[in-house]
Design a protein around this nucleic acid. Structure first.
Lengths: 336, 336
DNA sequence: TTGAAAGCGGTACCAC
DNA sequence: GTGGTACCGCTTTCAA
C-alpha cells in the first residue's frame, strides 16, 4: 500500500475525465483558434476537470512541441550583490516577462567555462547573461552554435567586439576618476587608493585605481595603492602602515564598505576625519549615512534600470551584439 | 539571405553525421549499458560528431522521456539578502547538486499564491522552496497534487504541521529575547524596540519585539515600541521623539542596519552611546565593526548551512514533512 | 464540431 | 551486437 508520490496530471487525464480528446483540452485551455467552435458546455466541462485535478501544462513538453524558448539564464557571482544589482535584476525580470521571457538565476555553484556552458545549453535558453569570470571563449562559442546569445556582465567591450558576445559593464575607471577628482578638488595632493585582496573584486579594484591615477595625474597629485581584505583587521594594518610612512591626505576606499572599515580604523588610531584624512567610498549605500562622520561616496546614476533591461531584452529577442554601459558616476559630498 | 538564428543540434543531426542510429548516439554519449558492445571506433566517430556540432542533449526532451525531475525552485524576496542567506543558498545548492538536483532561483517578480504556484508547477520541479508570503493554501495544494513538496521559508511551523508543508524558519522571537536579555543584563530597565515600517520586514519585527518583551518581563523592565523606516530621516524622528519623552536606557534596533541608522541619529543629537543609551542590533554584519562605537549584535549560530541543506535535500528526495529551525541566536557584546 | 494522428528531441526496450 | 521504434506530454494540422 505504499502510495507513491502523485504524478502531475497530464492532458490525457483531463481529456478522459471530461470525456473529450486531448486536442479539445488543449484548445480550450489555450483558447486556441483551431477549436473555435467548441460549445461552451464542453469548455466548461474541460475547465472543471482541469481545475479539479490541478492540471497545469508542463512547460517542457510544450516547448518541445512548439520550439519556443522562453528561458533567460542569469548567472551571477555573489560579488554582484547590493541594492543596485538587485534593482537591475528586478527591472530586467519585469522587462523580460513583458516580452514573454522568464528569467531564472542559475548556478550558485562556481562552474565556469565549457562545462558550465554545456549545463546552460542543455536548458535550451533564449539567452544567457553571465558574469565575465564564468565565460570562456569555448563556452561562448558552444552557446553561439546553438543560437544562444550571451551577454557578458563586466566583460571588456573592446575584446568582445565582433565576437558576438554582448557586454554590460559598469565603468569602474570612471568611478575611480570621479572619486579621484572629488579628492583632488578638495585640494588633496597626497592620495591613497585601496585594492581589494580577493579575486572577484580585484579586477574591478584595479580599474578603479587606474581611474584615480588619471584624476591624480590631471591634478598633479600622487597616488599610493594598498592591498586590503574585507576585515577590520586588514583595515587596521593599512592604517598602521600609514602611521609609519605618513598619512595620505585623501583616500579612496574602493567602495563604501571597505571605506567604512577604513574609517573605523582611522578613528581608532586617533586620526581626525576629514581634518587630517579625507575619505571617499563608492556605491552610495545607506551605510554612508550611518557612519559618523557621514561618508562621501560616488553614486551610479543612469537611465532607469528597467530601460536598460529593455535594451537587453531586445538583444535577447533580436540576437544582435550590443555593448552597454548605462551608468554614470556622480560624486556625493558628505562630511568626509 | 537572412540566415536565421541557428538551432541547437539534435541527436538526429549527430546520428546522421556519424552514420549511425540515434540510439547508438544516445548509448555512446551516456555510455549506457544498453549499447555495451558498440565498437570503440564507432564511439569515436559519434563523439567527434557531437563535439564538432557542439551537441548537448536537451534537458527538456530528456526529462520528458525519463520522467526524472531534477529542478529545485528557490523563490525568495529581496528581504532575505545578506551574507547569511547567501551562505545558506550556496550550501543548499552544493548539497542538492550532490544529490543530483539543480537549484534555480525563480521569480524576482512579486507573483504569489495560486498564480505563482501554477507557474512553478509548469516547470515540473522536484520541489519548491519559497518565502512564506508567496504561499497560499491553494497554491501549496496545487503543488502537492502534482507531487511537489513545498518548503515554506519563514512559515509558521505550528500552522503548517500536518498540512504537508515543510518549514524552515529563523526564530525571531529568540533573537529578540537574546537582545532583550543582553540589554537587561546590563542593568537597563527602560527599553525601546524598533519595528520596521515596511510589509516584508514587519512580521519578523513583530516577533523580535515579542522576544524583547519576554526578556523584559523576566527582568521587570519596560519596553516601548517605535515604528521606523529604513532611512536616516526616520531614525532622526525616532530619536527626536525620545528627546521629548525621555531617552530609553537600552535600545534594540531590529537589526544591524536599522541600529546603524539609529546610532548615527543618536550621535547627531549629542547623545552619548553607550553611556546614556545602549544599543544592540542583530545579524552581526561586518557593519557592526565599521561603526564607532562598535555595535553590539546578535549572531545566528547553527549547524553548518550545508548540513541544513542536506536535511532539506532529504525532504525533497523523500517527500516527508519536516520543520527546521537550525539557527541559535548568540549575543555579541561590543562597545554599544 | 470533434478527434485521430504526426511529430518535437530524446531514451531504452526488444526484435533482428 | 546493433539499431528500429515506441513512447514521454503536448500542440496543431487535417479529415471525418
Amino acid at each position: 500500500m505504499t502510495s507513491s508520490r502523485p504524478r502531475p496530471a497530464t492532458i490525457g487525464d483531463i481529456a478522459r475525465r471530461a470525456g473529450v480528446s486531448t486536442a479539445a483540452v488543449s484548445y480550450v485551455l489555450n483558447d486556441a483558434p483551431g477549436g473555435a467552435r467548441i460549445p461552451e458546455e464542453t469548455r466548461e466541462r474541460v475547465r472543471a476537470a482541469a481545475d479539479e485535478m490541478g492540471y497545469v501544462p508542463g512547460a517542457g513538453a510544450r516547448s518541445l512541441r512548439t520550439g519556443a524558448r522562453d528561458l533567460v539564464l542569469y548567472v551571477r557571482s555573489d560579488a554582484a550583490q547590493g541594492p543596485l544589482a538587485s534593482e537591475f535584476l528586478h527591472g530586467l525580470s519585469r522587462a523580460l516577462r513583458g516580452l514573454g521571457y522568464t528569467l531564472m538565476q542559475y548556478g550558485a555553484e562556481r562552474d565556469r567555462g565549457l562545462e558550465a556552458a554545456r549545463a546552460w545549453a542543455a536548458l535550451r535558453p533564449a539567452a544567457v547573461l553571465a558574469d565575465d569570470d564564468r565565460l570562456t571563449r569555448a563556452g561562448v562559442e558552444l552557446l553561439a552554435k546553438g543560437g544562444v546569445p550571451v551577454v557578458g556582465l563586466g566583460s571588456d567591450p573592446e575584446r568582445a567586439r565582433g565576437t558576438g558576445l554582448s557586454t554590460l559593464v559598469m565603468d569602474h575607471r570612471a568611478i575611480g576618476r570621479a572619486a579621484g577628482r572629488h579628492l583632488a578638488g578638495r585640494g588633496y595632493r597626497d592620495l591613497a587608493a585601496v585594492l581589494p585582496a580577493g579575486p572577484p573584486l580585484r579586477a574591478m579594484g584595479g580599474e578603479r585605481v587606474e581611474g584615480v591615477r588619471e584624476a591624480a595625474a590631471e591634478a598633479g597629485a600622487a597616488v599610493r595603492v594598498h592591498d586590503m581584505a574585507y576585515s577590520p583587521e586588514s583595515a587596521a594594518e593599512v592604517v598602521a602602515g600609514w602611521r609609519e610612512e605618513g598619512l595620505p591626505r585623501g583616500v579612496f576606499g574602493y567602495n563604501d564598505e571597505f571605506s567604512g572599515l577604513l574609517l573605523g580604523a582611522l578613528l581608532d588610531a586617533g586620526v581626525r576625519v576629514p581634518e587630517e584624512v579625507g575619505l571617499v567610498g563608492a556605491d552610495d549605500l545607506v551605510l554612508c549615512r550611518m557612519l559618523r562622520p557621514a561618508l562621501s561616496s560616488v553614486r551610479m546614476d543612469g537611465e532607469s534600470s528597467s530601460a536598460t533591461a529593455l535594451r537587453i531584452a531586445e538583444v535577447i529577442a533580436g540576437g544582435a551584439e550590443v555593448h552597454l554601459s548605462p551608468w554614470t558616476p556622480v560624486p556625493v559630498r558628505r562630511a568626509t
